[in-house]
């Protein structure tokens, strides 16, 4: 059992994701330190900048719950060993095409 995510080295590009505390919807940290439901608006970071952003996110409790790093490419596409998990989070369950964001449910 683990809700802990794999460690990502400092040079690996990453985004910060979590859940909207009020609704539970999946959200991503944007460059202006807001939260977006759209992965395409996620801020891609590395190194200290990323650490600093995660510190910010962890204090932003009213807006986000359980923020963590997810691995992305430089272009902000999901990558790494948790690709399936993060794809399911970003789109919705694979067994139902209409549930989650894939169904246009926003």
């Amino acid at each position: 059992m683990s809700s802990e995510r794999p460690k990502l080295g400092p040079d690996i590009p990453k985004a910060i994701t979590g859940w909207n505390s009020r609704t539970g919807r999946v959200i991503y940290l944007t460059a202006d330190r807001n939260w977006s439901e759209s992965l395409s608006e996620a801020c891609v970071m590395t190194g200290d900048e990323a650490q600093e952003a995660l510190r910010f996110a962890s204090t932003d409790q009213v807006r986000v719950s359980d923020p963590y790093f997810m691995q992305v490419t430089q272009d902000g596409l999901i990558s790494g060993r948790e690709t399936l998990r993060e794809t399911i989070r970003a789109r919705g369950p694979t067994n139902h095409p209409m549930f989650g964001k894939q169904g246009g449910d926003l």
Binding site: W19, T23, G24, R25, V26, D66, I88, R89, P93, G100
Partner: peptide, 14 residues
């Protein structure tokens, strides 16, 4: 507290 009342945070939602 939320767990004692059956509320989880899952992949997509509570």
């Amino acid at each position: 507290l939320r767990l004692q009342n059956g509320v989880y945070l899952q992949l997509h939602a509570y």
